[in-house]
Design a protein around this nucleic acid. Structure first.
Length: 928
DNA sequence: CGTTTCACG
DNA sequence: GACGTACGTGAAACGA
């Protein structure tokens, strides 16, 4: 192994394990062993080795908890909690993974991984080699310098002297002194009290180093700072010993033995097979490159699925900036010829109605993608903002010309456009008058396949399936106060970021689309998820009109009454002021100052002050009663009246929510910015807000909602004869079940009995428990249990359904809806009884809530064509789980109701009828 | 940034 | 015998 080292890569194994563990969704091997950190580690190594030109590589780990630092300062890292239970079994597996790559796994008793890295780095530099440290630990930044750089493997970011200076405000060689002053709470390094990073950097810059600073501390002007420094000089010196890395550790393996061995793919394949890393094994079909000789960045190929064996085995990225028409036409021709194109847009913001289109990227094959700028700030302006002056003025094709050329491609029926959350890109292009059709969406593919078992963001999926960390958005646009919009990003940076997104989307598509067939999700994706995209896109674009003046008047009224209530409450607290919005302060007032009885604690040990608690206290004291009123009005004002006014789009005068199609565990939609699925209705005051949602003059709002859809699904899915009969009889379902369960004739059902039956009916949908029902009805648990028994006796099929559903969840890890959607049930085998019970209830609820979600999605997909066929111009505006809201010309309102009712009721054919109730009015509140 | 509370289905 | 729950969301406010 005689070759002298030229490039040494030192990987911080321990640091990476923790990052991967917290950054990746939980994953388990067939035998239940958690392996998410092992998976992250393995993909990171594959990626790294493929990219790397290193001739010497080592993975370095922490040894035991005790190091020489504990001897200097016993509290060092002493407050660290033990590693999470799911992580412990992964420590040995990660070392095994390292050996499977034929890499040395190095650790040393009494020293941290950081000290070994520091020592090897010194040895390497002395031997004339270049050093790359793979870690995101800021404690290693002190090692950066000539010939030594760091790479953050999670963010895919290089850390050089400039980045260290950005973080610590000083050059790398002074980092130790800065850390000695400001300390580090995560490691329990004390530092000097009252001094943070900013001050520390300023002091070190001024005095040169820590010793000089401490010697001349008496010269410092600020009295607090001066005194603290003088009093804590020793603490600073100890801190420096804690943070300074040792470069003289007795390394257990000499540097020369870290040389890269020839690859042994069989060994690695065996390891991946043992862990169940199927997607990684596919990549090993090609030989593992341990050194990439070219300067081009090589990226490992993705798994080549059996259905699409055409994927090239190895991918080199070549991203092009398109600045002239010939190049643009060339890319359009490539996309058209291939019939498949990855597609992404860059804009100035997240709201597609307000954001401006900045650029478009296309990908035609793995690694082959381009970025077409449409609107970028001039070069001088860019230079002012980011990364120094631009080299030459960029040439951009005029926007109108670019869009005119793209238009036929995006509408070409023989070219499939693949986007990630393509709803957004469709909205953006629609604003330019361009349609995108046909399309696929990798976010929805992932959601249909894997449900809520993990997130579906592009970055997360790339890391998970491709082992690739995308360039972080913050890397390109900055973050926080320094963030700039994408149009101010220099073009070469914009190209790398934007083209990567399109490229990765296309690669994910190749990976995910074939899984639809093998995992029987074709129908869910193609009949429920994908066709909904244009429907939702249109709803979001249309928005709904709100009466601004009315909302503002409500705000004012609520505000006035809030002030009055606050005065009253303070008076009731013996004139002692407190923040009514603080549950913590309120708890003290109620249970410590006023000494009211029955205080409960939350799981974090605070006084519980929820509405249920305050309601119990209300008869005893006026303060909790008043506070309930205050809470209600404060909620209405803060969350609704004030917030909605601020959300009105000035251009349209309407509010435009955003529906998330891939957010929930059950298949429901979710609404945000603003959430229009939780507009008040249950109280009189709240209902006033719903009345502020109005139709345009000359139009009406139509509201249509499914009656008892979830209970009807219970009757159908669980095949409950008695419940089906009840629905066949129509009328009041809760009264009928009360009659059937309690054996009382229908005309003898009083409101109290009906209320109990209603609560049980809801309980069934939620996976009933005696505790839950008792809490809901305010009765003893024993009584609740008797009700449930009576219900089970009358409808015995429900018990069988619950058992069979739980078993299905245990067997497969998911349950399915009528239309084949998977609802995942993590925790169903948890050894913690409470966790398991939670998962069991969610499993029981899954097919019901999810089935109802499927049904309304089917109705929404069919509705636009049905309305058009009837010659109606009504527009779908909102969906609230079992309700659709439309806006229709006054003259068409009745005909619209007829069509909507017909489509919704025919959206599924069950063994019980589906019933839709509809109303027509000028406001949403009145249309119910 | 996690916790608590509360609006909806 | 104890655990700690009704199912699914998103927004605002507090306080570290």
């Amino acid at each position: 192994m005689g070759e002298a080292p030229r490039h040494v890569t030192l990987i911080d194994g321990s640091g990476f394990i923790f990052r991967a563990f917290h950054g990746l969704p939980p994953m388990t091997r067939a035998d239940g062993t958690p392996v998410n950190a092992v998976y992250g580690f393995t993909t990171m190594l594959m990626k790294l080795l493929a990219d790397s030109s290193s001739d010497h590589v080592a993975v370095i780990f922490d040894s035991s908890r005790k190091t020489f630092r504990s001897a200097i300062y016993p509290e060092y890292k002493a407050h660290r909690p033990p590693a999470p239970e799911e992580l412990v079994p992964q420590f040995p597996l990660v070392r095994e993974a390292t050996r499977a790559f034929d890499l040395p796994a190095i650790e040393l008793e009494g020293f941290e991984a950081d000290d070994l890295i520091a020592t090897y780095a010194r040895l390497a530099v002395e031997a004339g080699a270049r050093v790359t440290i793979v870690s995101s630990d800021k404690d290693l930044m002190q090692l950066v310098g000539p010939g030594v750089e760091m790479i953050d493997p999670m963010k895919n970011r290089t850390i050089g002297e400039a980045e260290v200076r950005e973080k610590f405000g000083v050059s790398p060689d002074k980092v130790v002194d800065v850390q000695a002053l400001c300390g580090d709470s995560s490691d329990n390094v004390p530092g000097v009290p009252g001094i943070g990073v900013k001050t520390a950097a300023q002091l070190i810059e001024e005095y040169g180093d820590l010793d000089t600073l401490l010697a001349r501390a008496s010269e410092i002007k600020q009295p607090k700072r001066r005194e603290s420094l003088i009093a804590n000089a020793d603490l600073a010196r100890i801190s420096r010993e804690l943070v300074r890395l040792r470069t003289d550790a007795p390394v257990p393996v000499p540097l020369s033995e870290l040389d890269v061995k020839p690859p042994a793919p069989e060994k690695l394949a065996a390891f991946c097979a043992a862990q169940g890393f199927r997607s990684l094994m596919g990549r090993l079909n090609a030989k593992i490159p341990t050194a990439a000789p070219t300067a081009t960045r090589a990226v490992l190929p993705t798994e080549a699925p059996a259905e699409a064996p055409s994927l090239p085995p190895k991918v080199e990225t070549a991203y092009e900036l398109v600045t002239d028409l010939a190049a643009l036409e060339n890319w359009i021709a490539l996309a058209t010829g291939g019939g498949l194109v990855g597609f992404d847009t860059e804009t100035t913001g997240l709201d597609p109605l307000r954001a401006r289109l900045v650029g478009v990227s296309l990908a035609v094959a793995p690694g082959r993608a381009c970025y077409i700028p449409v609107l970028h700030a001039p070069a001088q302006a860019q230079g002012d903002l980011l990364g120094g002056p631009s080299t030459d003025a960029p040439q951009i094709i005029p926007a109108a010309e670019t869009l005119a050329r793209l238009k036929p491609l995006l509408a070409d029926p023989s070219v499939l456009k693949v986007g990630h959350n393509i709803k957004y890109d469709m909205q953006v292009m629609a604003m330019q008058g361009l349609a995108v059709e046909p399309f696929d969406d990798t976010m929805l593919l992932s959601y249909a396949l894997d449900g809520a078992s993990h997130g579906h963001g592009l970055d997360e999926l790339c890391l998970l399936h491709l082992g690739h960390a995308n360039i972080p958005f913050s890397e390109v646009c900055g973050s926080g106060r320094n963030q700039v919009t994408f149009d101010r990003v220099p073009l070469d940076k914009a190209r790398d970021y934007a083209a990567e997104d399109a490229d990765m989307t296309l690669r994910l598509h190749a990976l995910l689309k074939p899984r639809l067939l093998s995992e029987r999700m074709v129908s869910v994706y193609e009949t429920l998820e994908r066709p909904l995209v244009p429907v939702i896109a249109a709803m979001e674009r249309d928005g709904i009109k709100v009466d601004r003046a009315q909302l503002m008047a409500l705000s004012e009224d609520f505000g006035r009454r809030l002030t009055e209530l606050e005065t009253e409450v303070i008076a009731l607290n013996n004139g002692e002021a407190f923040n009514l919005g603080s549950p913590q302060q309120l708890g003290k007032v109620l249970f410590e100052t006023l000494n009211l009885p029955g205080g409960k604690k939350t799981k974090t040990g605070q006084w519980a002050t929820g509405a249920d608690v305050l309601e119990e206290l209300a008869p005893l004291h006026a303060l909790p009663a008043r506070l309930l009123d205050w809470r209600q009005l404060s909620k209405l004002k803060g969350t609704y009246t004030d917030a909605l006014v601020a959300q009105i789009n000035p251009a349209t005068g309407r509010v435009h929510t955003s529906y998330s199609l891939a957010a929930t565990t059950t298949g429901r939609l979710s609404s945000s910015d603003p959430n229009l699925q939780n507009i008040p209705i249950r109280t009189e005051e709240g209902r006033k807000i719903r009345h502020a949602f109005v139709a345009e003059p000359g139009k009406k709002l139509v509201s249509a909602d499914y009656s008892q859809i979830e209970l009807r699904l219970v009757a159908h899915v669980a095949e409950i004869a008695g419940l089906r009969d009840a629905f066949a009889h129509g009328a009041d379902i809760h009264a009928i079940t009360a009659s059937q369960v309690f054996g009382v004739p229908l005309d003898g059902i009083d409101p109290a009995l009906r209320r109990r039956a209603k609560a049980i009916n809801f309980g069934i949908i939620y996976g009933i428990s005696a505790f839950g029902l008792a809490a809901q009805l305010g009765i003893p648990q024993g009584e609740a249990k008797a009700y449930i028994e009576a219900y089970f006796a009358r409808y015995p099929e429900i018990r069988a359904y619950m058992e069979r559903t739980k078993e299905e969840a245990r067997d497969q890890g998911f349950v399915t809806t009528l239309f084949g959607r998977k609802v995942f049930t993590p925790g169903i085998k948890d050894k913690n009884g409470a966790m398991r019970a939670f998962a069991e209830r969610a499993a029981i609820n899954g097919p019901i809530q999810g089935g109802a979600a499927d049904i309304i999605k089917r109705a929404m997909i069919r509705l636009p064509a049905a309305l058009a066929a009837a010659g109606l111009s009504a527009r779908l505006l909102l969906q609230v789980h079992d309700e659709l809201v439309l806006e229709a010309p006054e003259a068409e309102a009745d005909a619209t109701v007829a069509v909507v009712k017909q489509v919704m009721e025919a959206a599924a054919s069950l063994s019980v009828p589906l019933l839709v109730e509809a109303g027509i009015a000028d406001t949403w509140g009145a249309a119910h």
